[in-house]
Amino acid sequence: MSIITVERKVLEKNDEIARRNRATFSQRHLFVINLVSSPGSGKTSILERTLEYFNKRVKVAVIEGDVQTDFDAQRIARYDAPVVQIVTNGGCHLDAKLVEDALGSLDLTGVKLLIIENVGNLVCPSNYDLGEEMKVVVASTTEGDDKPLKYPGMFQHASVLIINKIDLLPYVNCSMNTLKRNALQINPSLKVFETSCTTKSGIAEWCSWLEQNIHHEDGEGKDIGATRR
């Protein structure tokens, strides 16, 4: 019997490409977020409200990830933002290679902020680094207040939590305090925003925080206020 010692991370190939993506982003002074959540929590609506808020004042590009269809890219294209759709054909998450390939078909001239909307899935995307600055997790009130406890991996890896659909709070069985308490038990450093894409409540707070983090000409973010995990 003989033993070969290996000690290699199974996802090392993904991590290596993610490092390459991160270097590309940093060279271009691009602030990149990886938007994750379960399907239907409102990631694309938050993106639309974000693009509306910046109204081309800050140039934003978008990478859309979906299992099928380019519906989301069509929604984003209406805002005149550079967008590319990745269709994973059944794949449950985006990986660094898919993002690297997508970057080739995006015109990033003048772009300050790149938002990658991941496949709607609260499990798999948490383990794949895409090279982003931070993961932003969206939890909507209609999903209930126990999501952070049921899917802790995603909340552990995120730097920001957006609680969406707060206009529906009177109609759903979800306590805002419980939701926040649950999330902070999993990750006490989460920065929390409360939004409604229908009433636009909380969108300005989220967007102005985002704007503060965008890298300026000298390549420095103003106030990062969140750590990458």
């Binding site: 019997m1 003989s2 290996v6 000690e7 199974v10 383990n127």
Partner: peptide
């Protein structure tokens, strides 16, 4: 306390490969 550090639990790693040789 909330100032905590995760020590382990996120591993996914190949550590060793065991082979059966001719003499086995």
């Amino acid at each position: 306390g909330v100032d905590t550090a995760v020590l382990s639990g996120r591993e996914l790693q190949v550590t060793e490969i065991e082979l059966e040789n001719e003499k086995d």
